[in-house]
């Protein structure tokens, strides 16, 4: 399994990560090695088997749509690095 530099940069972009030049090399090597190991799944006798999305059979678990007490806004904002008027603050996105 060969992973190209372009591919790793594309993946990093999808994952919102910057990679330094030396990180690119390291991660390329590791990714190749791990993928080479992981491709053993192709040898597994899985013909005709359904995909499992998890452990339990239950797929959707519904509850009543009720108004319940929620968190205090100020408490939730406490971990934000910037806030204004009870909102999370981010740089301008529309010019």
């Amino acid at each position: 399994m060969q992973v190209s530099k372009e591919e790793i940069l594309h993946i990093a972009k999808l994952a919102d990560l910057n990679l330094k030049e030396e990180e690119i090399e390291t991660y390329m090597g590791h990714l190749e090695e791990i993928l080479n190991f992981a491709k053993v799944v192709n040898k597994a006798p899985i013909d005709g088997l359904e995909e499992s999305i998890g452990v339990n059979e239950a797929y959707n678990i519904f509850r009543k749509d009720e108004i319940i007490e929620s968190f205090n806004r100020d408490e939730l904002l406490q971990n934000a690095k910037e806030q204004q008027q009870g909102m999370f603050k981010i740089p301008k996105v529309i010019n």
């Binding site: 594309h10 993946i11 999808l14 993928l35 992981a38 491709k39 799944v41 192709n42 597994a44 006798p45 899985i46 088997l49 359904e50 995909e51 499992s52 999305i53």
Partner: peptide, 19 residues
């Protein structure tokens, strides 16, 4: 999970999970 590899890895892995 990326397009082009999903079937080869993730989907297979979910089937192995059943196995």
């Amino acid at each position: 999970l990326s397009s082009g590899y999903y079937d080869a890895y993730y989907k297979k892995a979910q089937q192995v999970r059943t196995l």
